[in-house]
Structures are given as C-alpha cells and as structure tokens.
Write a protein that binds this DNA or RNA. Structure first.
Lengths: 138, 138
DNA sequence: CTGAATCCGAAACGATACTG
DNA sequence: CAGTATCGTTTCGGATTCAG
C-alpha cells in the first residue's frame, strides 16, 4: 500500500495547504501543527521514536546507547513525555536488577510513516540546504 | 503522482527504520533528522512555510496577520533563517513605503509534501493524544 | 511598511551526584 | 539497571524602542 501525500502540481498543492489553514483550529487558539511540533519538535523525541520503531522494544540503557549523545536525564524526561502522549509504552519488570522495556504504541507506530517522510526529505535535501547556507553566508 | 512513504506492514516498517538508522550520518556527528529539525522544528518555521505554500507570495505584514500570535521580531528572524536555508526567497521593491515579498523556493515547495503529511497526522491523532494525556494525568 | 537593536524572563538542556 | 534531584548554562522568544 502506498500513502498519497499530495499532488505535486503547484496550484493543487496550494489548494491543499489553503484547506489545512482554513481548518477551524488554525487562527483560533490551538493549531494541530503547533500541537504536534510541541511534542515531537524537541531535541530527542523523534530520534527516540525512530529507534523504538526499528525494534520490538528497547530497554533504557539500550536506547541510551543508540541515541548517541543523549543524557540520562533527557532520555528519562523525553520518554515520560512520549508516554504521557500515548506514543510510548513503558513496562517495568519486578526483577533485580530492574528491567524496563519501552515500545511504541499503535499511536506511536502511526507516526513512523511521517517520520520516514521527514527523514527522506532531510537526507535528500541536506546538501542543497548546506549549499544555500554557504551562499547566504558568503 | 503519488508519493510512497512506506509499507505499513510493521516488520517492513521496522526494516525501513533500521536502514535509516544505519545511514552513515547517524551515530557519527551529524544526523539529517536532527539537522532538519534544527531548522523547521522551532516555533514558527513550519507555520510560515504552510502559509507561504498556500499563496504565490506574501508581504511581511500579510504574513504577520496570517501567522496568528507571532511577534515582529520572530517573523523577521525566522524568515531570515528560512532564507539562509534556501527555503524562502525575499524580494525587495524599491518603493515608498517599502514592499517586500516572500515566496517559497523550489526547495521550500519540496517540503510542503512532508508538512502536509505531518499536518494530516496531527489533525487525525490530536484527540487521541489529548485522551492519552488526560489518562496519564488522572 | 519593514525592519534592526536591546533587554529580560522562561524554558530547554547538560553535568553531576545520589538512590532503590 | 533505571532512575531522581539539584544546579548552572544556554537558548529561545516576547516586549519594547528606534530607524530607513
């Protein structure tokens, strides 16, 4: 199955965007785009989702190793937020030493498609952005 | 034309994510995902791109009105960054009073597909997230 | 109209030390 | 192993003021 994002014809694309912007939530108080960015737009959420999506489940320190550079504190904080948002499930096993497994919920899995789209765009256009920055700076 | 994001079968999705994570940039210094988030993951970039994508071009104060709540400073700052990244084009007309038009570049337009995907996910699952938060808090 | 410059409070993040 | 608690730094963004 393929997922259709949008028709690439410029004027049709513009039409889709207009409809999005006409959505009642926009202009008023809360906007869905803002909302989702407030949750996954931080420094670590997306990388955690990416890694959890690649495996059935991961333990705390396994995840810590995979998400290079994250501090223990930020891993804990970010995981708690993702759990609160219903994107991640946390399972504690009453063992010694303790074992805690994290896995994506169905809601979390539903995000991975979007994440992949974002990642593909990023990898494809990072060189163009770098070139633009160099041009702008020079 | 349709854009294929991914096969929705869980194990295949996991495979796609694994390949993404194996990409040389990850684990090393710079990661494309992190890179794109550093640029459009802030408070206003995505909303500006959304609005510019809906029109041919927009003047500074037109944009200011549409992006509800943005301060003059942040509109300027964000537009400069988007311009530096090659996502937005800025055209100054030597008139009095001055007129400045902003429009998406081709690179900017290429992002709108991703943005639409993100927005669709957001609008579809915002209620589920809200419910999860309520559950978590209670 | 479209900015630039400055100031300041809030929030995000990292480092470190400690715990069941 | 998987956290919690505290602290200090940095970054972000809003308000305000001034200018071409």
């Amino acid at each position: 199955m393929n997922i259709t994002i949008a028709d690439p014809q410029p004027h049709t694309m513009a039409q889709v965007l207009k409809e999005i912007l006409l959505f009642p939530a926009n202009g008023a108080g809360i906007c869905p785009v803002r909302d989702v960015l407030d949750r996954i737009g931080d420094k670590w959420s997306l990388l955690i989702i990416l890694n959890l999506g690649a495996e059935e489940n991961l333990r705390f320190n396994e995840l810590r190793r995979r998400v290079a550079g994250i501090s223990q504190r930020m891993l804990t904080v970010t995981l708690r937020n993702l759990e609160a948002d219903g994107l991640v499930d946390r399972t504690v096993y009453a063992e010694v030493p303790p074992r805690v497994e994290y896995r994506l919920t169905d809601l979390g899995h539903s995000l991975t498609g979007v994440v992949i789209g974002l990642t593909n765009w990023a990898t494809a256009h990072t060189p163009a952005i770098a070139a633009a920055r160099a041009r702008f700076a020079g």
